[in-house]
Design a protein around this nucleic acid. Sequence first.
RNA 1: GGCUAGGUAGCUCAGUUGGUUAGAGCGACGGACUCAUAACCCGUAGGUCGGCGGUUCAAUUCCGCCUCUAGCCA
Length: 679
Amino acid sequence: MTQKARKILVTSALPYANGPIHIGHMVEYIQTDIWVRFQKMRGNQCIYVCADDAHGTPIMLRARKEGIEPEALIARVAKEHKADFADFNVGFDNYHSTHSDENRHYASLIYQRNKDQGNISNRTITQAFDPVEEMFLPDRFIKGECPKCGAQDQYGDNCEVCGASYSPNELKNPVSAVSGATPVDRDSEHYFFKLGNFEAMLKEWTRGGHLQDEVANKLGEWFEAGLHEWDISRDAPYFGFEIPDHPGKFFYVWLDAPIGYMASFKNLCDRTADLAFDDFWGRDSSAELYHFIGKDIIYFHALFWPAMLHGADFRTPTAVFSHGFLTVDGQKMSKSRGTFIKARTYLDSLNPEYLRYYFAAKLSSGIEDIDLNLEDFQARVNSDLVGKVVNIASRCAGFIKKRFDGKLADQLDNEALFETFVTGGNHIAECYENREFSKAVREIMALADKANQYIDEKKPWIIAKEENREQELHAVCTMGLNLFRLLIGFLRPILPATAEKSEAFLQVPPLAWQDLDRPLLDHAIAAFKPLMTRIETSQIEAIVAASKEDLEQQGSTTTISDGPLAKDPISETIEYPDFAKVDLRIVKILKAQHVEGAEKLLQLTLDLDGETRNVFAGIKSAYDPEELEGKLTVMVANLAPRKMRFGVSEGMVLAAGPGGKDLYILTPDSGAEPGMRVK
RNA sequence: GGCUAGGUAGCUCAGUUGGUUAGAGCGACGGACUCAUAACCCGUAGGUCGGCGGUUCAAUUCCGCCUCUAGCCA
């Protein structure tokens, strides 16, 4: 099987340079790295580049807040990012920055070529402007009351409480999140990328096998809605590249971010012999180009990016591979639960190979989210890697060392079994190629089980005690170690450091896939040293605890301005008669049910000492109906009935919290009975 | 609100182009073994395949509605 080596360029999405890498990010870099290492093991030319995404308003403001130049901020963050990736054994061939000469060059070139082709337009738009800071405000830097539900402290594009989407100028009492000033409208000329010019090209491209089916489905939505022009400019002050010939106007960060892939590759070309930029990016390039991304940024990579490239006479990607998000113990990563785990926090306690293995065991070619279940993580790594795989070497190595002077026999005990492994390897390779890592892992572990069964069947510890069976013992242990060698070869893309240690133990050069169909015979090996140790519960607890500490530290440095009281200050003072007008009563929740078609509401039937009330409460996101029934709570009993879309609501139950899952209804102390007044 | 995905044993996941007893690993329980990092081997128990309705001789699998989880809506 002498296949011609493929030329492949691979990227992961560029991490944003205003914060640390966390384990959610690592899903993508680990997934990509495994695929790249596999390709390299297969003998292909595979180049993996990435960079920090260093531009934009958040970075400018963050630097300002820290009292440093943006360049200093991004230099510091780049150093941290590189260390995190290196320590997770992510083997970039180059890691660059979007704030680089190469990127400025390609951003300007792509802009200019598209402009020459008539793909850029300009017009004046009205935007919110902070008169104190003298800057235009991105939507997420404007806060105010939700125009639909009145919730406080909502961002300029949508409400976290009721889920409504709106434009920033609809917010009530808007304030700039930068200065606290009230924004004013101001006109500015902006430049737009005419995505509509590429409709035919994109329709063909998105259905042309370059995307996963579910992603192509999702994009159908955009085509139906019609392709809008994309605003690619921002006004000064902005940290980014000034648009050629338009002083004071800058490229929007999302324009030059994907161009960072090219810039990083160019940077590598410039210091590598025999690596030519055009071979990979020229319109007629025969090389393969793959982008690994999260499902949240499909839009940019599957529409704007191919269009920009096409419009600028560059090749388009061979494929864009999207993956899902990481949840921890079934929920979004949470700082308060200690599951918002930074890469560095993990590395302080645990071997990166564990997480690489666990992610691999969960990753498929689809875009489903994957869950890091901490208990399962520990059990699975200990059982699969330590108990099964590494143990195979451990249980054979001693005999070889003590009885055979560290030398393997010149033949295998069971060639058929060895062949089974080799054949299994073909399918495992297919799984890697198709990014079905969880399938690959399942098959590798099934083989590991077979290896342990084999050893158990042969019982070398019994043979060793009998006379005249030296040769048999030698062959069995040689067999065991050869099976181990294949397993490590198969796992090498996932566990590069463990593979390296194993290669040192076996005294062989780095394993390539093509080496795996022949056994290692008549060969001296080194003394066995434990390759990997078990995960202790205390190590996981340490990570969770440290992640909670991070939160506390953050809390103290950003002063005390983050609590509920700061977000929603105490209202103006009232007199007792005002309060007395509100008739609060204890009620029993007789019945709670979902309301068909309502996203936020539960319908409650409340018992008020014989009288029943029908109340709609916006607590669906926080409570299951079953858990409410039978509970006592507090209601405003004399609130005027209000007609809602789903019926008349006769009062209001009291609950605290910012919204979403964080809503807590009030419960009286035991002894209270329905109908009692609260005062 | 619209859309794209997902909801299968205690946990993590396979699977079913609709068809007799729905699978694996881990965990639990029982046994065996001692070469090995209390690892490994053999066996047992565990599931109204998210809910309701429809199509069908037959649905976990197809269709509709509902519900929960995640993401996107330039």
